[in-house]
Design a protein around this nucleic acid. Structure first.
Length: 232
DNA sequence: CTCCTGGAAG
DNA sequence: CTTCCGGGAG
């Protein structure tokens, strides 16, 4: 069993146990991209409150949102936390869209990961994970999304170094998996669902985890009740 | 109190 | 490298 083939086994195990994910919540590419920015280090339930405020005001489209002041925008997205920072980031993204597609994300059809990813990363407030989330979930392009759960789960299973960088981990997935946006979409969704429900930062519930079988096979960890204790 | 589908600034 | 952003939920 090599480290690469196991990625597909992880996918099959989560998919069999959890079923389809129907990600990303959002009706338009812009709404999805906006959610990707608002959810940075933030629980999705809080993002939904902010999205609700924008929806009620008819502001879930770029041209309307672009008319607001930073202060107005900040107050509307306040439930998402770090609201002044995120208001500036949304503004930067709107400015990017203005130049890239005249505030119409349909104009980004035909772009490629290789062409668009570097441009997104130039936007202050859009880092690797947010850029890949926009590429994959808003635009349907095959760019694998790595997040804290991905690193935590695979790290705890001993498959990757704990301090592996974002790009290295993304490359690991993309070197192994076929460049299939639907597969990337569902894979990341399953990782988040698994991480959220079973792989909490302090106390992982390994006993009932869909990936429990892989712990016995690879892990340098010991499960004690509901907690995981790093092995010396 | 810690943590949440990170990223920038210091 | 470390700190900050920040409200909401457990």
């Amino acid at each position: 069993m090599n480290r690469e083939a196991v990625l597909l086994d992880y996918y099959r195990a989560m998919r069999a146990e959890l079923g389809p994910s129907r990600w990303w919540p959002g009706d338009t590419p812009f709404e999805i991209a906006l959610g990707a920015i608002l959810t940075q280090n933030t629980a999705w339930a809080n993002v939904e409150k902010a999205m609700h405020n924008l929806r009620e005001s008819g502001l879930l489209e770029p041209r309307a949102l672009a008319r607001l002041t930073d202060g107005e925008l900040a107050m509307l997205i306040r439930p998402a936390g770090a609201f002044r920072v995120k208001a500036a980031r949304v503004r930067n993204f709107l400015n990017f869209l203005h130049g890239a597609c005249d505030l119409d994300m349909d104009g980004l059809r035909g772009e490629t990961v290789e062409g668009l990813r570097p441009a997104l990363l130039e936007v202050s407030g859009i880092g690797p994970e947010t850029a890949d989330s926009i590429l994959l979930y808003a635009l349907g392009l095959p760019s694998f999304v790595v997040d804290a759960y991905t690193r935590r789960i695979l790290g705890r299973h001993g498959l990757i170094p704990e301090d592996i960088g974002y790009g290295e981990l993304r490359d690991f997935f993309m070197d192994v998996l076929p460049p299939d946006a639907a597969l990337y979409n569902e894979y990341h969704a399953l990782i988040v669902r698994t991480g959220k429900n079973w792989c909490a930062k302090k106390a992982g519930k390994c006993a009932s985890c869909p990936l429990a079988v892989f712990l016995e096979e690879f892990s340098p960890l010991t499960c004690v009740g509901k907690s995981i204790i790093p092995h010396p």
